[in-house]
């Protein structure tokens, strides 16, 4: 039985979560596009961003601020996490990846997995830190409640659908970011440099493009988007934990591959698709099978359409 009301509601939830996944997926796709590395640590950078947001929220006592103060607070968390995650991602590239540019892809990937584990452990330490902002603080590994400072009301009054300020926030943050990013990649000097490096790093460096700095900037921007995503994720879903990076990372990577890795609109399309598939599966199948379904999508896409829905059909170079 397909109840239209339930279906639409799941669609809204799916689209909101999908936008968040898309924002993370852009981080994967940008880095992959430029140095062909699956940045394993990206999901964990996202996770640390959520912890920073929670710490900011608790340390400044934002829960007690008035409605207008909380708008300011959300903006503060968004900027704080974005700068933090961007900086963290940039440092990972500087410390762990840059020296390996000339090594095999396998070494680079292994280094990224190492970074992912280090970040995950930092999240564990962070979650166990003796701070009064962490509810469920007895165990470091337990998921933490993220205070719902966004009012949980229905903007449509008593209508049959429910759209919360949380849904609006997701779209209000993600859409301008995506538009801005597209503009940056298409129109600005840095964007042109990024595309040049992605196409051929050696030729780009011969044209006077500082390749390492452009790659660093890509990592920063990708990480910053993950930071934005972490704040809206936390405000939307209200629970964070040190292991959430792996799951979010797998979803986002699946989204990036689904849309065609290296393609920005592809990442958005993939994210929205995965978000909707997840919420539909939660509703019409069983929650416990959702991850399995997402994985099956990943495998099927990779087998039948490895370039994704919007990806280019460039073959691997000899």
């Amino acid at each position: 039985m397909l109840d239209f009301e339930v279906f639409s509601q799941q669609l809204i939830t799916g689209l909101s979560n999908g936008m968040i996944i898309a924002l993370i997926a852009i981080g994967y796709t940008m880095v992959y596009g430029i140095i062909e590395l699956i940045n394993f640590a990206h999901g964990d950078v996202f996770m640390l961003g959520a912890f920073l947001a929670l710490t900011l929220l608790g340390a400044l006592g934002m829960e007690a601020w008035g409605p207008s103060g909380q708008v300011f607070g959300v903006a503060l968390m968004l900027i704080g996490s974005a700068v933090f995650c961007g900086g963290l991602n940039w440092s990972l590239d500087r410390l762990a990846y840059r020296a390996l540019r000339k090594s095999s892809k396998l070494s680079l990937l292994v280094s990224a997995i190492g970074c992912s584990f280090v970040c995950m452990n930092l999240g564990l330490f962070w979650g166990g830190a003796p701070m009064k902002v962490f509810a469920n603080g007895n165990s470091a590994a337990a998921p933490k409640d993220f205070p719902a400072i966004i009012p949980q009301i229905n903007l449509l009054g008593d209508g049959f659908l429910r759209i919360t300020p949380g849904d609006l926030l997701v779209f209000a943050v993600t859409i301008p970011l995506m538009v801005g990013l597209t503009f940056m990649v298409k129109r600005t000097r840095l964007g042109r440099a990024m595309r040049a490096v992605a196409q051929d790093p050696i030729a780009a460096s011969l044209m006077g493009i500082p390749v390492d700095r452009v790659i660093g900037a890509t990592f920063f921007i990708g990480g910053a988007l993950g930071g934005f995503a972490s704040v809206i994720y936390s405000l939307y879903n209200n629970t964070i934990g040190f292991q959430m990076g792996t799951r979010a990372g797998l979803d986002a990577f699946t989204a990036a591959v689904l849309g065609g890795i290296g393609s920005l609109p592809g990442a958005v399309l993939g994210g929205l698709t995965i978000g909707c598939v997840r919420s539909m599966s939660d509703q019409y199948l069983e929650t416990r099978w959702t991850n399995t379904i997402v994985f099956c999508i990943l495998v099927l896409i990779l087998i039948f359409r490895p370039n994704g829905l919007l990806g280019s059909t460039r073959r691997e170079k000899v």
Partner: peptide
């Protein structure tokens, strides 16, 4: 102590694995 996350050696596992991978590759 259970209260202090840093004082339980088990909590350092991921860090050790991660650093082992990064340093070994490098």
């Amino acid at each position: 102590s259970q209260g202090n996350v840093l004082l339980s050696p088990n909590n350092w596992k991921f860090l050790i694995f991660g650093l082992a991978l990064i340093l070994a590759v490098r």
